[in-house]
Design a protein around this nucleic acid. Structure first.
Lengths: 418, 418
DNA sequence: AGGGAGCCTGAATCCTCAA
DNA sequence: GTTGAGGATTCAGGCTCCC
């Protein structure tokens, strides 16, 4: 339960062999940059150096670190090495050498969405964590994730049976009550982890560059350790690993070369702050409120879908005289005039001078000739399927009345069946 | 446009240098296993050998393959190497050697959900695709995805600046009005791709082990090539890359060591469109030529694209009284009446009694009141973008005439420039 | 040419205001 | 007071531009 100041290669020599259950390290990634960040109150600034004379120098350093990590690990222990694409392949070769490739367990991909910028190339949105064990007899707790949101809750909880027709159905007792199945634990955790990047606005942020979310560390600790185990982080930085260890009742040793980092870690351990992540808790999907149909329509209009707005469903990619053009799709059960009112109200503050309203419902009332239809700021267009379906229905009716066609249909049906 | 049988190291020697725009390879992963899978009809079984004497042997083989790939690539070309965690780090070292680490572009993670099987360890649910370019001047098309649902409209619309404290804030002009950012197309594609693994029952599945989803290949081709470019797959297997290339109008060369694989690829290329109406499967020599615009339109109409037919571009998924409903999209430079004539002629033999003609061009002549417009067998609908663009253009003209708005626009433009 | 300063962006939070 | 819709804010990667 300590935070130590100094070079982790030296300090680990003084840690007894086979005494640690888990090593997590988040070493320099070989970015050849200086990372710096001002703390929230603008008072302090933390910097983190990641400059090296050569790749070889970096790899010699890392090999020494990993050798010491191997030494301090218990036979049941394991190591999680956090890196990014810059040097991940070289680091994995080192791990193969020091730990042995037969003890490679997983390549964990941590993915996140992040503020972006347009550039030539793909937006980098993942980091890699290599998971090696010291022996084949290592501690591992299987974690379970929730069922995907599309899975019906009833499917998870209710027992099933076959009905008279041989179809699957929910089992009910003689009184018609639902019968619950035995407890299901969920889906075993996969090796791709979607955990939100520590948001710039999150309270959890302490102003240290490269700070990792507590959620990520908690998951690693839960997989590889039990309560009371000892966790070592040779590059503890702002101390996220130590905070996660404390929150989960694990013992810990943190090491860092920077006095600032050690001080920060100690301070943070006094009163750990863990953000509540809304997105992580309820899932990104829960923020979506458009149907596939609406998304398809927006795509056909060459518009960007807009969420979190009651009046506007999308924005045209084309701007009219530097002003946005908003789009709304008429909702089922919503009259065209109500849809228009909502669109206009929401567009007002966005300075739209052109709006597009997509009609998707057959109008029962004859509102087509309402005054506002002549409004030159709102263009009303009919969804293709509305136009086509109305036409096809009308045509079908006409055809039913036309005997000759009906007879030909009959003949076609006959031959289709034979 | 060929599928060749043999050792790709040998065959690539006969391919001219600097003649290929994209190499995609899905080589053996060094799993040390024999992969086999029965086809859907349970008649044929395809096997795929991945046994090696040693890692060194495998790496020598792969180095030779990659060297030949480098040779055949154009200076603007790039390579996508598909592998999994087994040997990914060794393969990336080879790529660094052959292509140069400065031309490493992205580590693409393909994730998918799989049936869970509880075991000690994390469920493997990703594969890696390394993306290297031959030079720094390589072809790259930025694809865009939707904004996250947590993003609000104002962020998309409003331009920003830094205030005195150096913090970001919305930009306002001297009158306190918001300033709009330029046109937005969405968020650039990230390097983690969540694409469903082939469903075991999917029609797309042809029974070849290691078969990749066509969506994955389409995305790669869209990123790195243009229409008419040449794509090479030295381990083409079931030919998914070639099918994707044909669907997107790219030329292709496929190579495989297995006669079964070559035969299967050729067979798949005969009928590349999955749900393709039998009636229209005529001709063999012509190639697919739908533009993205037309594909998008057909999708919006809920129609299936039809290739190799001069008069018909698609068929509605909905059948009217057991008869197909044909669709034609007016071509640029083609008058509406000519388009109609071609549609009607081509539909005659297909027993269509309902046809849909999509108008995409502004009509110069006043043919709207032609006799045939009243034809109750052909429905003429306007493409969304035609309607919208005409309206926006008219609006722009009106605005130019309106002094007050013109002045405001001027002010907005001024502040946008400053 | 090379290095550093500054600009732009959008995810996910925080915060405000209205009902 | 409570709720929630939606506006405002923060940061780092990658770019450009300027010296």
């Amino acid at each position: 339960m300590t935070v130590l100041l100094g070079d982790c290669r030296e300090i680990m020599k003084s840690i007894p062999s086979a005494s640690v259950d888990l090593v997590y390290l988040d070493p320099p990634f070989f970015t050849q940059k200086t990372h710096s960040l001002a703390a929230r109150d603008n008072m302090a600034e933390f910097t983190f150096e990641d400059h090296w004379a050569s790749l070889a120098e970096y790899l010699v350093f890392m090999r020494d670190v990993l050798s010491e990590c191997h030494k301090v690990l218990k036979p049941t222990g394991s190591i999680f090495l956090h890196c990014d694409k810059t040097a991940s392949h070289h680091l994995r070769l080192l791990l193969d050498n020091v730990f042995g490739c037969e003890f490679f367990q997983s390549e964990i991909i941590w993915t996140y969405k992040r503020w972006s910028n347009a550039k030539k190339g793909l937006l980098n949105s993942h980091q890699t964590i290599y998971f090696y064990s010291k022996t084949s007899d290592f501690k591992f707790n299987i974690l379970f994730t929730d069922y995907s949101p599309t899975t019906n809750v009833d499917q998870i909880l209710q027992a099933r049976m076959r009905n008279e027709a041989g179809k699957a159905a929910y089992r009910r007792d003689e009184n018609g009550h639902v019968v619950f199945a035995g407890e299901k634990r969920g889906v075993p955790l996969a090796d791709v982890w979607n955990i939100p990047f520590l948001n710039p606005k999150a309270r959890e942020r302490v102003g240290y560059p490269t700070q990792k979310p507590i959620l990520l560390l908690e998951r690693i600790l839960e997989i590889a350790t039990e309560s009371g185990d000892c966790v070592l982080d040779p590059f503890c930085g702002s101390g996220t690993t130590l905070v996660a260890a404390r929150l989960l009742g694990r013992n810990f040793i943190g090491i860092d070369l920077s006095p600032d980092a050690v001080e920060l870690s100690q301070k943070r351990l006094q009163e750990p702050v863990k953000s509540f992540s809304q997105v992580f808790a309820v899932g990104e999907e829960s923020f979506l409120d458009k149907t596939d149909y609406e998304r398809g329509l927006l795509k056909a209009l060459d518009a960007i879908p807009v969420e979190r707005n009651q009046g506007i469903d999308g924005l045209l990619k084309f701007y009219l005289n530097n002003r946005p053009v908003s789009v709304r799709i008429q909702q089922p059960g919503e009259s065209l005039s109500v849809a228009r009112r909502k669109l206009v109200a929401a567009s007002k503050t966005k300075h739209c001078i052109a709006m597009i309203l997509v009609r998707t419902q057959k109008e029962t009332e004859l509102s087509l000739f309402d005054d506002w239809m002549a409004d030159e700021d709102v263009l009303v267009i009919d969804a293709y399927d509305l136009t086509i379906n109305q036409w096809l229905q009308a045509k079908q009716k006409r055809m039913a009345a036309d005997v000759s066609i009906a007879e030909e249909d009959h003949r076609i049906n006959e031959s289709a069946q034979s």
